[in-house]
Amino acid sequence: MISFAFAAVGVFILALYTGGVPFISLLLAVSFAFYGVIKKKVEIGALTGLAVETMIVTPIALIYLTFLYSSVTDALYLHSLSTFGLLVGAGAATAIPLLLFAIGARRIPLATIGFLQYLAPTITLFIGIFLFKESFSGIHLLAFSFIWVALAIYSLSRTKLFKRTHLVKLEKRPAS
């Protein structure tokens, strides 16, 4: 609960700073959390699950691409073989991490998956700040500090040392 409060404060600070609640970011986080839980709980192989997901999404994507291609001239830019090859390669570059995620989600605890989900955005943030010189104000630092402290508190609470120490304290309490 303490880590959740710290994370909420961090998001609240960013919401105040930007002038609005980051609905899309929160929706993305919640939807990916549910995706991870479903991947963990459904008794289906990783490759089969990815095939089912692809079968569900493909008709929607085809309808969208048909609409886009018919309404915008050169929307898909498929005039060269190299562009077509890049698009096919982009599909593989997307499918392989999804397959590996599905395999990993079955083998490691959800808490670990949640922790790992902070790595890519954090690395992206550092690349943006230090490589591309994106702006990062004191408010950003304050907000992200709350979020990272929340992550640290939650991660430490999941360790065996914390659980062992916490159990010792509970055992020393007088019975009521």
Rank of each mutant, 00 (worst) to 15 (best):
F34A: 08
V30C: 13
L68N: 13
F67P: 04
L47R: 11
S71C: 11
V30D: 03
F32S: 02
L76R: 03
T48I: 11
T66Q: 09
Y69K: 12
K41S: 15
S80W: 00
Y69G: 11
T73E: 13
V30W: 07
K39N: 05
P59Q: 08
V52G: 06
A46C: 10
L26K: 03
G49L: 04
I24S: 03
L78T: 09
V57Y: 08
V37I: 14
I44F: 06
T48C: 06
F34Y: 10
I63D: 02
P59H: 12
T66N: 12
K41D: 12
T48S: 07
Y35P: 01
A61Q: 13
S25T: 15
Y64F: 15
G36I: 08
A33L: 08
G49Y: 06
H79M: 07
Y64T: 15
A61F: 15
L28Q: 09
D74I: 03
I24A: 07
E53Y: 12
S25N: 13
S70Y: 12
V42A: 01
K40R: 14
L76N: 07
L68A: 14
I24L: 09
A61P: 10
A51R: 13
P59S: 12
G45T: 13
M55N: 14
L76V: 01
A46S: 10
I63Y: 09
P22A: 09
F32M: 08
S71P: 00
T73V: 15
V30I: 14
E53F: 14
V57E: 00
F23Y: 13
Y77E: 10
K40H: 06
S25Y: 10
S31G: 08
S31P: 01
V30F: 14
S31V: 11
T73Y: 01
F67N: 14
A75R: 03
F34K: 10
Y69T: 09
S70G: 06
V52N: 03
L50Q: 05
A51W: 13
A75Y: 03
M55F: 15
Y35H: 01
L47K: 15
G36S: 15
G49P: 00
H79C: 02
T66R: 08
L47W: 10
I56G: 02
T66K: 09
G45P: 02
V72P: 01
V42R: 10
V52S: 05
I24K: 00
V72I: 13
I56M: 12
P22Y: 10
L28K: 04
L78E: 05
L50G: 02
S25D: 13
I38E: 02
E43Y: 01
G45W: 09
I60G: 06
M55R: 15
F32A: 01
H79N: 15
P22E: 12
V37S: 09
T66F: 10
T54R: 11
G36Y: 07
Y35D: 00
M55Q: 14
A75G: 04
F23K: 05
V42F: 00
L78H: 06
V57G: 01
V57R: 02
F23A: 12
S82A: 00
A29G: 10
V42K: 10
P59L: 08
